[in-house]
Amino acid sequence: MAKIVVDVMLKPEILDPQGVAVSAALPRLGFTFAKSVRQGKRFEIEIDGDPTPAQLAEVAKAAETLLANPVIETFTVRVEK
């Protein structure tokens, strides 16, 4: 069994109010390391066996169609053992 991970992030030019709120909360708790924070989504997709290139292409197609909105978001597809 393999796990395919799709990470979805807002494009850099799109305002991320949630990330801004997290970024503002960190120093209040004494965490002063963050210059900025962006918040995204992670999808974990389990499949039987090792994924073939065709399956990965299909996942990428699904990410482009449903998991991410390409108008405002970017995504990456990777395999986690």
Partner: peptide, 10 residues
């Protein structure tokens, strides 16, 4: 075109 995102003040 475009998209609707979280209100800027949340």
């Amino acid at each position: 075109p475009g998209a609707l995102t979280r209100n800027h003040e949340l």
